[in-house]
Design a protein around this nucleic acid. Structure first.
Lengths: 193, 193
DNA sequence: AGAATTATACTAAACAGTTAGTCTAAATTT
DNA sequence: AAATTTAGACTAACTGTTTAGTATAATTCT
């Protein structure tokens, strides 16, 4: 991939994340990326296609960080996946912003994305395995608990600015560490007998 | 409030929720509301001010639905507040959409809104009371559990389209009912000894 | 090897449609 | 009488997109 194209994609990601699809300006993206506006249309045939490319890029990266838990019990594996999820959201702040905006606006692309249920399927599968092995408690609606767990993790990042202040002045790394500990506790209390 | 103004506010709310601030069009809002475009500028001096009015309206409504729990125990009150939160989000789908978009875009207005921490403060206060009365278990970071609970509730609504399919073909009312039951269980397991 | 051609990356400037916002004059409602 | 609403033309600025052309290095032809 050419240097210009890469710069455009990176800059566009930030722009779309901060301003949303409609708020982002091709002019601004070009200027910020330090390239001519026409170069964007040399590489991508429209704003919509640029957005699609940005999203695909993002989800590709998300999927490439594979999660093949290495633990010896369902409990360990579930915790690994959850911590991985937290690390991913922590390391990709733009991901959450673009997700929230695009989901709220019901953008086309998201109907085609199969990676979307990535974490959900992973967690759900492990839980069901846990029920079979007797490690996890059997409940009427397992999807309820999976959604709740994912939501609990996701919410901190999606509403970070509003929430962060309740944690005081400690470093972000420390908050992440605390979040992981809490989520381990929550998983233990909700899913395991 | 005049009939036209009210119609404009309602239509603008839907437009901003669906399309976002930048995606919403004044012309379309006027047409949909069935009023002349000039009337919008008669009541509001700019698009930005219309948006502000819409947000204030929304939060006023949110705050007006007061939550003064009537239960006899912290447990009952906490459940009441949580169910009220679920009902509110269920009954105000635009609220979530506007929240997600505006939070992601870090819009000015949200820095001035004090209602924002409404539910957080309410839940946090009850939890602390519960710790004092011995009803709730004492944890190192109570804010962690409050954030997790709110996130678990909020997530279902904010990512409704993506999540809903995991629940099959049952009615939305039924899902809400199931969600409430699950959240009661989660609260019991997380906060109460 | 040197000339001709191609491919890729890129730019400057303009085009064409859109959009927030304005103006004026009249009509209707309260 | 005052507040509200309509009608619709109008504009200034903006914004996505196109066009036509440049630079350069690699490839192919002679």
């Amino acid at each position: 991939m050419s240097q210009g194209k890469e710069k455009i994609l990176q800059t566009a990601l930030e722009a779309f994340a901060e301003k949303g699809y409609d708020g982002a300006r091709i002019d601004t993206i070009a200027k910020t990326a330090g390239v001519n506006k026409a170069l964007i249309y040399y590489h991508f045939k429209s704003k919509e296609e640029l957005f699609t490319a940005v999203i695909n890029d993002l989800f590709e990266k998300a999927a490439s960080v594979s999660i093949e838990p290495t633990g010896t019990s369902v409990r360990d594996n579930l915790i690994q996946v959850m911590e991985h999820f937290i690390d991913f959201l922590h390391g990709n702040p733009y991901f959450v912003k673009i997700m929230d905006q695009s989901v709220a606006q019901d953008r086309d692309i998201f109907h085609q994305l199969h990676h979307q249920n990535f974490f959900f399927e992973a967690v759900m599968g492990m839980y069901q395995l846990g029920v079979r092995t007797g490690e996890c408690r059997k409940v009427d609606h397992p999807e309820e608990y999976v959604v709740s767990l994912l939501g609990a993790v996701y919410f901190y990042f999606s509403h970070h600015r509003a929430i962060r202040k309740f944690y005081g002045t400690i470093s972000e790394e420390e908050v992440i560490s605390i979040r992981k500990r809490t989520m381990r506790d929550i998983i233990a209390r909700l899913i395991f007998v």
